[in-house]
């Protein structure tokens, strides 16, 4: 099967309400050769910040065949260091070159004092942090000249200082900054298990219109003598409980472009495509209901 030439129909500004997959270097050739029938592709923006070479070359060849989303992991939106304008300029260049339908970042920070941790570190959910995040997201959107989506991360701790739940913080951020929300259903599940909150309450608290993309992935359970913790490893199939939560999310938010993320212990492309088909089936059910 080959992908339909969706671009000519939709133009670069739209992403279909279907499932897509994360494009990783290991699958470049397989994607080019087999053109799997997934709705769209997402890449990590920073992987294409190089001046040239194979990553950009492959993306250029693959781009005409699929709508694209750029997903950032390194901007450190929530950091109290000055916003990295070199990073933003590189992102802007990439956006101009590849015309992605969606551009997203995380509700987290990853650097302080000039030191970068290459991780999505947790924020305290306070008024002060909200004020900071709103300013940073607005600044980012101003520089990029477009709306961005902010994704809820998996978290492994909660601060004593937090004065509101994450969902309230995220909903407020979207309302005050005008950003969209990339709702990672797996991250909601992981954090709900780690902190003992009700994942469905999270879904209910996010206003319907702000959600423009959903992420699905697999996690790992780390067990210790004094308990267990779920880690967002993106290294396996989406678990049954997350599929259930996804179904609920689709019930609430409607048919939202959904991404299958897989970053470590990458399987063959066909495994990702099969996961995307599964998500597509759930999106279709919703469509049938609505009809």
């Amino acid at each position: 099967m080959t992908a339909k030439p969706v671009l000519s129909v939709l133009g670069p500004g739209l992403i279909p309400a279907r499932a897509g997959i994360g494009l990783r270097a290991e699958h470049y050739d397989a994607v080019l050769q087999t053109r799997p029938a997934v709705g769209w592709l997402e890449v990590h923006s920073e992987n294409y910040f190089g001046a040239g070479g194979k990553p950009l070359d492959y993306l250029e060849r693959i781009r005409p065949h699929y709508p694209l989303s750029l997903h950032g992991v390194g901007l450190s939106v929530g950091s109290t260091d000055p916003l990295d304008h070199r990073h933003l300029a590189a992102l802007k260049t990439l956006i101009r070159r590849f015309e992605p339908a969606l551009v997203s970042e995380h509700l987290s920070w990853g650097s302080v004092g000039g030191r970068h941790f290459n991780d999505l570190l947790p924020l305290p959910y306070t008024e002060e942090a909200l004020y900071h995040l709103v300013a940073r997201v607005c600044q980012t959107q101003d520089v990029l000249g477009r709306q961005i989506l902010i994704e809820n991360p998996s978290s492994y701790l909660q601060y004593v200082e937090s004065a509101m739940p994450e969902w309230e913080f995220l909903a407020e951020l979207a309302q005050r900054s005008g950003c969209g929300v990339l709702l990672d259903v797996n991250n909601i599940y992981v954090s709900a298990r780690n902190h003992g909150f009700d994942a469905r309450a999270y879904l209910q608290a996010i206003p319907r219109p702000v959600v423009q993309e959903i992420h699905l992935a697999g996690f790992t359970v780390n067990r210790f003598d004094d308990g267990e913790i779920l880690i967002d490893t993106h290294n396996r199939l989406v678990c049954p409980a997350v599929w259930t939560l996804y179904r609920q999310a689709v019930q609430r938010f409607g048919r939202i472009p959904t991404l299958i993320e897989w970053d470590t212990d990458l399987p063959e492309l066909a495994v990702l495509v099969a996961e995307a088909e599964r998500a597509d089936a759930i999106l279709e059910e919703r469509h049938a209901q609505a009809a």
Binding site: E46, F49, G50, G72, D84, R115, H116, N118
Partner: peptide, 10 residues
Amino acid sequence: PSRSGDLHEF
């Protein structure tokens, strides 16, 4: 330590 969110320089 890494000095950028872009790992190419790390």
